[in-house]
Design a protein around this nucleic acid. Structure first.
Length: 731
DNA sequence: GATCCTCGAGTTCC
DNA sequence: CTCGAGGATC
């Protein structure tokens, strides 16, 4: 009879707790993995409640893997960073049958096998995450981030009931380390219910299940995540310990089956396919069933099934060569073209814009779409009032494809290009055979002045942080700013009313910040300044060439541009002759800058108003380091025809990327794209903006666009950032 | 004059 | 990202 209180009552209770935990995990498995629940939700909730009550009586029995511990955890100030030991790669995309057939051909060539088998599965439209299990217990969850490092979302992922906190194998035989990769998403039905709840609470609704899932997973308070109905589906593995690695299933599909046995949900629509025709058939079949799946999918994925062949096929920059995502076509929707308005751009270009009855397409609501120019409207035969087909081209920009002529209403009317600028009333003109109408108002036109200011302040120009559309509109409206030079005369008291806020301290802080940003922008570089001026045909590239060749602004202003046009034309004609005769060529001034651009420069610098603005800017303290003019044109390729540099007193150390032309695409893991471009140029390379057969190689990062398939098509080598850095450092 | 390669300019939604 | 147009070359 000694103190039996704890043990006599405790032991059966402990057994009950252990049994409840196992039972709940079993029902989670039945529900989320096998999609075959055996008990009603109410019975499941009763089990969970009973467990909670027992644990409340015996807090020392609580373990982190208990299903009651999914909810809760405390909110954090920010997410930690997780480095992915094995980078989380993205997949190359295919949009057409031909691209899939080309993929199959490349795979067969790469592995030297004629009839490889593929695993075909769904491409979930959610967020990629990596789950790390150690000895069978979930220890960490991370988002993909940029592929090499993501955010630590462990507390949030633990609340997702489809994610097992323990793998369903005895601890002794569980893998030491197993990183499971998959997608977190929200079912369409759950999404609808969540939005209904948000509506009734007066909270903001989510635009689509993907955004809802992303927003829910990135909550700093895991309690909120717990209240959101998230799901998880595994589709692959990342890091594993060496022992597990050697005993993994041999094929991708077998590995997915193995993940199921570990208690992980895997999409059920998957199969082995032997031929490219079979892949295309799978795609068509899945597309036709798209709306039967309870979640959103944006395509299907094909992977080489045998894992040893995957290794043999290898990796290409940041995507595996042995897998491809075959995307579904952009969704097309019908809506009404309610009106066509026009916008006035920086150069006065009048651009017609379609005003659409808002339509939900490709995951967002679209109400505007550019129509490019008048000819485009005529070509597509669009009338105001027409029913039109809209889609999101690529993955972002809305596009009006065509109108349904048969349903044109009686009161439909054609678009008429306005004869006068809608903003300033100046006349609107179009060059002889140009496609674009322009307002001739120049800086008299408010729209052009506004755009000129925005251009001046933009990141690639003087980079004035905080000077965006709203502020510029206010400044122009209040008559505080007419030219860029006026920006540097602004005072604190003038700015305060612009940042009208409830709290006066906020106002003055915002004003101070803007003044500081303007102050900081005074110290700039010549190429930025020349670009910022907004001279017609002078973009970043031309501004760079000019800055290099002239070293300072005054020689540009002083240049006799009309004369240079004539001189350059003569030299080019003469070079033409020399080329035919095999003679050495003369250096051409300002390579890449022809008659039109020079004419534009000449007219800009001849305008007293422009010179006045430039003078005022410099007087306000805008300055740049003056460089030694570099005669770019004299060192470029023309000298190579003969053995010219024979005598050789001056031996130039060749730069590591000398004479290469490279193209940069996608998001690089550590470098900014501009940063990488500067490094490449410093190393002697030319950085081009599009891929051609003359491109030496393409530096590709995450989410590379159309340049990557183009590079593959042209057989241009593709490298990633680390290889890029190696080449820069070691030549 | 034709062709290929680039760059400039404009753009949507959150 | 896409289209239009400038520039170089044959």
């Amino acid at each position: 009879m000694t103190a039996g209180h704890g043990s006599s009552q405790g032991l059966p209770a402990l057994e009950r707790v252990l049994w409840l935990r196992e039972e709940i995990a079993r029902h989670d498995y039945l529900y989320y993995v096998l999609d075959a629940p055996q008990i009603p939700d109410a019975a499941y909730d009763a089990l969970l409640r009973e467990l909670g009550e027992l644990e409340a009586q015996h807090p020392d029995w609580i373990i982190p893997e208990s299903p009651t511990q999914r909810v809760g955890g405390k909110a954090s100030a920010e997410f930690g960073t997780v480095i992915h030991t094995e980078p989380m790669l993205s997949l190359a995309n295919a949009f057409t049958d031909d691209e899939v057939i080309a993929f199959d051909r490349r795979v067969r060539e790469a592995i030297g096998e004629n009839a490889p088998e593929y695993a075909a599965e769904l491409k979930f439209d959610g967020l990629a995450v990596a789950l790390r299990y150690e000895a069978g217990t979930l220890v960490q969850a991370a988002t993909r981030g940029d592929g090499s490092a993501g955010e630590d979302v462990t507390a949030n992922v633990r609340t997702i009931r489809a994610v097992p906190l323990r793998l369903t194998v005895p601890q002794e035989v569980a893998p030491l380390v197993l990183e499971v990769r998959g997608e977190v998403l929200m079912l369409r039905a759950d999404f609808d219910r969540l939005n209904a709840r948000q509506r009734s609470l007066g909270e903001r609704e989510f635009v689509n299940p993907r955004n809802a899932a992303a927003g829910s997973l990135r909550q700093l308070d895991p309690g909120i995540t717990a209240s959101r109905p998230l799901r998880f589906f595994a589709y692959g593995i990342g890091q594993v310990d060496p022992a597990t690695g050697t005993s993994l299933p041999q094929t991708h599909l077998a590995m997915l089956n193995w993940l199921v046995t570990l208690g992980l949900p895997v999409g059920s629509h998957r199969r082995a396919i032997a031929t490219p025709a079979g892949l295309l058939e799978f795609w068509r079949e899945t597309l036709s069933q798209r709306h039967l799946f309870p979640y959103e999918i944006d395509g299907v994925v094909y992977k080489l099934n045998r894992r040893d062949w995957q290794t043999r096929a290898g990796w290409l920059a940041r995507a595996p060569r042995w897998a491809i995502a075959h995307k579904f076509p952009a969704e097309e929707m019908l809506t009404v073209l309610q009106d066509i308005t026009v916008q006035v751009g920086r150069t006065g270009a009048i651009t017609p814009v379609a005003k659409l009855r808002p339509v939900f397409v490709g995951g967002v609501t679209v109400s505007n779409a550019t129509l490019h120019n008048e000819d485009e409207i005529l070509r597509k035969n669009l009338w105001i009032g027409d029913t039109v087909i809209v889609r999101r081209a690529g993955d972002v920009i809305p596009e009006v494809l065509r109108s349904l002529q048969q349903s044109r209403p009686a009161d439909a009317r054609p678009f008429v290009m306005p004869s006068h600028c809608p903003v300033c009333g100046s006349s609107v003109e179009r060059e002889a055979d140009g496609a674009i109408w322009r307002c001739v108002g120049g800086l008299f036109c408010g729209a052009q002045r506004r755009q000129a200011l925005l251009h001046f302040a933009q990141r690639r120009a003087l980079d004035i942080e905080g000077l965006g559309e709203k502020v510029v509109d206010q400044l122009v409206e209040r008559g505080l700013v007419k030219t860029p030079a006026d920006l540097f005369r602004l005072t604190q008291s003038e700015l305060i009313p612009i940042f009208r806020a409830k709290n006066p301290a906020e106002e003055s802080r915002a004003a101070t910040n803007l003044l500081q940003a303007i102050q900081a922008a005074k110290q700039t570089r010549l190429e930025r300044f020349v670009f910022a001026l907004g001279i017609r045909h002078v973009g970043q590239e031309v501004a760079r060439i000019l800055a290099m060749e002239y070293g300072d602004l005054d020689p540009m202003i002083g240049e006799d541009w009309n004369n240079l046009i004539v001189r350059k034309t003569i030299i080019q004609k003469d070079n033409q002759r020399r080329r035919n005769h095999g003679e050495a060529l003369q250096a051409v001034p300002l390579e890449g800058i022809g008659t039109e651009i020079m004419d534009s420069l000449g007219r800009f610098f001849a305008e007293p108003h422009n010179l006045g603005v430039i003078a005022a800017l410099r007087a306000s303290g805008v300055q740049w380091p003056v460089q030694q003019p570099v005669a770019l044109s004299s060192v470029q390729s023309i000298g190579q025809t003969g053995p010219s540099a024979a005598g050789g007193e001056t031996i130039f150390e060749p730069l590591p990327l000398q004479a290469l032309t490279i193209v940069i695409t996608g998001r690089l893991p550590t470098l900014g794209r501009d940063q990488a471009a500067d490094m490449a140029r410093a190393a002697g390379a030319k950085v081009a903006s599009s891929v051609s057969k003359r491109t030496s190689w393409v530096l590709a990062g995450e989410d590379a666009g159309s340049k990557l398939p183009r590079a593959i098509e042209l057989g241009v080598p593709i490298i990633d950032e680390s290889e890029f850095l190696r080449r820069i450092n070691h030549g």
